[in-house]
Amino acid sequence: MTYTPRAVAGMLGIAPTTLRTWDQRYGLGPSVRTDGGHRRYEDADVEVLRRMVVLTSQGVSAAAAAVLARQEPVAPPRGPRTPISPADALVAQRSLLTAAKRLDEPLMSDLAAKLLYDHGVISAWEHVFVPALVELGEMVVGSGQGVEIEHLASGSVLHALRGIPRTSSPGVLAALLSCAPDEQHWLALEALGAALSEEGCMWANLGARVPAEALCDAVDRLRPTVVLVWAHRPDLALRVPLDELGTRSGAVIAVAGSGWEGVPLPSLVRWPRSLSEAIELVLERVR
C-alpha cells in the first residue's frame, strides 16, 4: 500500500508542514511518485518516520534523529544503563500516553523499546510504564471508556519487553514465574523476566491462571532457584499453595503484587515490593 502525505501526517499525529520539512531538510520523503508527480509513502517510509517521531519526542535534535531513524532498531544491550531522570520520565510518560490515546501501537512500541534500550528494564518499568498504565487504568475506571487504549498500551509494552534477548547459555533456572490460580494480570512477570534477561539469568514464566497442582508439578520438574507467584487480589493469593511449595522444593518462595496485602505468609516466604527488589532477591540467591 501507499499513502498520501496527509494520511501519513494523520497517522503520525504531526502537521503536514512538519512532514514536508523533514522531506526537504533530511531526505525523509516518499519512495514513490505517481505518474502525475504526486508523492506517495510506502510502509517502510512510514516506519522511518515513526522512529523520527519517537526520537524527536525524546529530545533528540531533528538532524541527529534523521540519521538514527534510517537505522534498523537493534536489541537492547545487557547490563546496567543510565537511570532515567524524573523530568525525562515525565516526558516519556506523556509521549506514551499521547500515542496510546491515538491508538498508535507502532509508535508506542517504538517509544517503549527506546526507553528499554537507553535506561534498562527496571528504570523504564518503575518510572514510565507503571505510572502510564496506572493512569490509563484510572481513566477507564473513572469514565467507563478507553479499555481499548489500555489494552493496546499494555500490548505495546509487552512487545518491547519481549525484545530483550534471553540468554542461551546452559545453566541453572534462576527463577520460575507464575500467576496465582485465576489471576489474569501477568505483564509484571514479563517485566521481571526481561530484567532477569538483562542480567544474563535463565527464567521461565508459566503465565496467567496457573492451577495450584500445575505450579507444584512445574517446580518439581524444573527445580528453580526462586519461585515467584504474582497476585493482584487477596482472594486469588489465598489459592496459592505456599506451604506445599515450601516443603516440596528447595527453592526460595517469593510472592509479588498487591493481592498479598493482609494475607498471612509463611515465615520463609519473601515479598519483594518492587521490580528492583525482586531482581536483587533472585541475583542474591543465584550468586
Rank of each mutant, 00 (worst) to 15 (best):
83 P>R: 14
145 Q>G: 01
214 A>T: 07
256 A>Y: 01
107 L>S: 13
140 V>I: 12
216 C>W: 00
220 D>T: 04
174 A>D: 09
27 G>P: 12
198 E>P: 05
43 D>W: 06
26 Y>F: 15
154 S>F: 00
99 A>S: 15
234 P>T: 11
264 P>Q: 08
147 V>K: 05
104 D>L: 11
123 S>E: 10
256 A>G: 14
143 S>A: 09
23 D>C: 09
37 G>W: 04
258 S>G: 03
97 L>F: 09
110 D>P: 00
275 L>Q: 06
55 L>M: 12
114 K>D: 15
181 P>S: 11
33 R>W: 04
69 A>I: 11
15 A>Y: 10
76 P>Y: 01
81 R>A: 15
98 T>I: 10
217 D>R: 11
119 H>I: 10
226 V>S: 01
178 S>V: 01
250 G>N: 05
174 A>W: 07
99 A>C: 14
113 A>N: 02
254 A>Q: 03
227 V>M: 01
117 Y>G: 07
202 M>I: 08
185 H>E: 07
279 I>H: 03
163 G>P: 06
269 V>C: 01
281 L>N: 05
37 G>D: 05
19 L>F: 12
67 V>S: 08
156 S>N: 06
5 P>S: 11
123 S>K: 12
146 G>W: 07
59 G>R: 13
71 Q>H: 12
220 D>F: 01
142 G>T: 11
143 S>M: 05
265 L>Y: 09
101 K>W: 11
205 N>I: 01
38 H>K: 13
135 E>D: 13
130 V>C: 13
29 G>P: 02
244 E>P: 00
276 S>H: 08
170 P>K: 11
187 L>M: 08
260 W>I: 06
65 A>M: 12
10 G>A: 15
3 Y>M: 11
218 A>C: 07
66 A>C: 12
276 S>A: 15
176 L>Q: 01
214 A>H: 07
196 L>M: 12
37 G>R: 07
115 L>W: 07
241 P>A: 07
131 P>C: 05
29 G>M: 10
232 H>G: 07
243 D>K: 05
